[in-house]
């Protein structure tokens, strides 16, 4: 808890330092990392805590992003209205998709969540009213009186506050009755049922909560970039979120956040800071950040199966 507080203080001070160093770009970059951290953490709740390998988490991020963007396009400028709406709609989507998907297990669950997400991807692609495959652009960020979300520092603090609340909530939930039951179900589903836990209901609740958080991340993403396109629902986005969780640490509190930070930083630094000798060898390599990400993922999976969080935290969780 002390370490977490120290970390929080560091992140509160970060934008001030970046501003002093005239590195404003990184304030916005950090906001983006934290938004992805929200989304990846919500997936980690499903994957690491609930033991469900969902390959369609982008559907809920996308639902939230589109809900917020469409509301903005229709004149709802307040984030106080749009973001809760995004959360509710994403939770609803998760309830519908989860209610069907959770009747399957293993590889079928992976496939059915993927299929649902792809259906939603094609659905928003066909929303000609709202940009179709070109997406929706907003002229500015939503309003959130008394905050000015247009200000990068203010936006940063909003994202930081939401991420901090989410991580604290996850910490609590995992130790509360609900989290213990979920952990039991992950370890041994049949046994959990045999001592009286309604397994399906727990899984669905977990799936819906994660969907709601992903929806919030989506709304933030749309606000942050002032733009949303069907790409946020594409299956590769679900894959990116999965990679973040695996990189960071499946089932670890910090896994999603660490994974998001490492993955986005890798992509950014590879693309924007070409290494001269490497560029001479392979002129286009900066466009293929995925190659480096793949190498890092391989290293983590082989050398640190519990992810980066597992490397940092020793002794391991009992």
């Amino acid at each position: 808890m002390k370490k977490a507080l120290a970390l929080l203080v560091a992140f509160v001070l970060l934008p001030l330092a970046l501003r002093a160093l005239e590195q404003d770009f990184y304030i916005s970059f950090a906001s983006r990392v934290m938004i992805y951290a929200l989304a990846a953490t919500s997936l980690n709740f499903v994957l690491g805590y609930g033991g469900m390998i969902s390959f369609g988490h982008a559907a809920f991020v996308g639902t939230g992003a589109y809900a917020a963007a469409i509301l903005f396009a229709e004149g709802v400028a307040s984030a106080w209205l749009a973001w809760p709406a995004a959360i509710v709609l994403a939770a609803l989507a998760a309830a519908l998709i989860g209610a069907v998907s959770l009747r399957t297990r293993g590889v079928y669950f992976i496939m059915i969540t993927l299929a649902f997400a792809q259906m939603m991807f094609y659905l928003v692609n066909s929303l000609k009213m709202y940009g179709g495959d070109e997406g929706l652009t907003a002229v500015r960020r939503p309003e959130a009186w008394p905050l000015d979300l247009g200000d990068e520092v203010a936006f940063y603090y909003v994202a930081l506050a939401l991420l901090a609340v989410l991580l604290f909530a996850l910490h609590r939930v995992s130790r509360a009755r609900f989290g213990r039951a979920l952990d039991a179900i992950r370890q041994n589903e049949a046994r959990a049922e045999a001592i009286g836990f309604p397994v399906y209901r727990y899984r669905l609740a977990c799936f819906v909560i994660a969907g709601a958080v992903a929806g919030l991340a989506g709304a933030l993403l749309a606000a942050h970039g002032k733009y949303v396109n069907p790409g946020v629902l594409h299956w590769t986005q679900s894959g990116t979120l999965l990679i973040m969780v695996i990189l960071g640490g499946v089932g670890s509190l910090w896994g999603g956040a660490l994974g998001a930070a490492v993955l986005l930083s890798l992509e950014h630094f590879i693309a924007d800071y070409p290494v001269p000798w490497l560029a001479a060898l392979a002129p286009n390599y900066t466009q293929h950040a995925a190659l480096a990400v793949g190498a890092v993922l391989l290293a983590v999976v082989l050398l640190a199966p519990r992810g980066i969080a597992g490397l940092l935290a020793r002794p391991p969780r009992a």
């Binding site: 909530a169 609590r172 939930v173 509360a176 213990r180 039991a184 370890q187 046994r191 959990a192």
Partner: peptide
């Protein structure tokens, strides 16, 4: 439940019987 202690295993079964387990905090 292999990762839980004996006591935690049993407490879980008691939990399933007593009160709501939809307690999040």
């Amino acid at each position: 439940f292999p990762e839980f202690t004996v006591e935690e295993n049993l407490a879980l079964a008691v939990q399933a019987r007593t009160g709501s387990s939809f307690s999040f905090w």
